[in-house]
Write a protein that binds this DNA or RNA. Structure first.
Lengths: 219, 219
DNA sequence: ATAATTATTTAAGCATACTTAAATTTTAAT
DNA sequence: ATTAAAATTTAAGTATGCTTAAATAATTAT
């Protein structure tokens, strides 16, 4: 499968996780930086390859084959991130940027070597689960977004779901890091802002942030 | 530059090393597994991009820009081979196979990280020199091919210039390995065969082999 | 030197993955 | 319910990197 196809199914896969399986060509076009027309075009082609179900004006649904392909690419992406993060002094944004290309040129053989070397990690440096060699995500995810977190409680950051350099920079500079503890000070229902503390740092986060920072409750 | 272009200039570069700067479209076509027509076509396109000098029916000559691009890709290829060889239990053929793809999707930034991690190695696991970040090969190569070696003398294997799995398997099974000592027993001028010993192993090698096994004289 | 072989080039065509512009359908607003 | 806005689709066109077939030039053999 080509790079374009791999990126297309990957985009559908990740978009459907957030967007309640209501991903349409326009969403993918925006994600991939291509025109809506190109996305529609590709959707038809992939339907012919049995990678997704396509019906005019309807949401794009990956077939089992399509999901497997997406998870195979996601696996390679996250394994590369894990390897680069462990070996080199690279930021979350940098490992993502490199993995975005390497993921398409990695044989299953090499992916397994990387996984083995790392001791078959279950999560990447962002906290995202790494699918196994069969394309299955076995670890159940009990984390919630900061937006769903409850005032007055403390949580451990488990995932930072983003590709954005500025976001990672912000997190880096404010202690919003995988494993760190955040305390939810106050939630403002009207503005949808959330005030949190990380160590001695107090932050006011808007929806854009609270939706992509995932946390686990502290027992 | 695209993968096709990178492979094209790389093929010219490596072919010109062996073929005395007499590389024509047909040679490249054969190397890359494309038609002669496609090679001629590409040569014209790359001339327009100032990557090579093209004149009808003449040999293809890389420009400085073309050579720099080729060496940049070669650098990445050999750094990947070095990294994969060091970290994983992979054969010379396997590291080559993977590097062939990874080389095109590696930023200069990542290449430098790999180089740094490895302590800026001068040679890859095949014994081939690794160009530096400026695309220069600083180490002078004093090695000669086994075909040029002298009867009765002992040499140390310094390079195995090949992409071929079977060749590597043969070498593996017969002690023809980077760093090992070979003794030139007898050369047959008519058949161009060479009889050598490696440890207690006696081998009769034809031209195909003696031309791609490089050695250094023992002082 | 000439003929035969081989290599190169030209020409026409194809698949992939995009583009823009226009038409159509859906969704949202009033 | 009707209109306005937004999204989707269709249609036509483009660049890249190939293909095969035919024409042309260069090389090799006799």
């Amino acid at each position: 499968m080509s790079v374009a196809i791999e990126n297309f199914v990957k985009a559908i896969y990740s978009n459907n996780l957030q967007d309640h399986n209501n991903t349409k060509p326009g969403n993918i076009a925006k994600k991939l930086g291509i025109s809506n027309a190109a996305a529609t075009d590709m959707a038809k082609k992939l339907a012919a390859k049995n990678l997704l179900h396509y019906e005019k004006y309807q949401a794009l649904q990956l077939t089992d084959k399509g999901t497997k392909l997406a998870l195979n690419v996601v696996r390679k992406h996250r394994l590369w991130e894990s390897l680069l993060f462990k070996m080199f002094d690279m930021s979350l944004h940098e490992i993502h940027r490199e993995a975005e290309f390497l993921e398409h040129e990695t044989s299953d053989f090499l992916a397994d070597k990387i996984s083995e070397y790392l001791g078959h990690p279950k999560f990447d440096p962002h906290g995202d689960p790494i699918p196994n060699a069969n394309g299955e995500i076995t670890t159940e995810d009990t984390s919630i977004s900061l937006a769903q977190a409850v005032e007055g409680k403390a949580y451990v950051i488990s995932r930072l779901i983003s590709d954005d350099e500025e976001f990672f920079d912000f997190c880096q500079h404010n202690g919003l890091k995988f494993g760190n503890t955040v305390f939810i000070k106050k939630q403002f229902s009207k503005t949808k802002m959330t005030q949190v503390t990380v160590f001695n740092n107090t932050l006011l986060l808007n929806e854009d942030f609270t939706n992509i920072i995932y946390v686990n409750e502290i027992e």
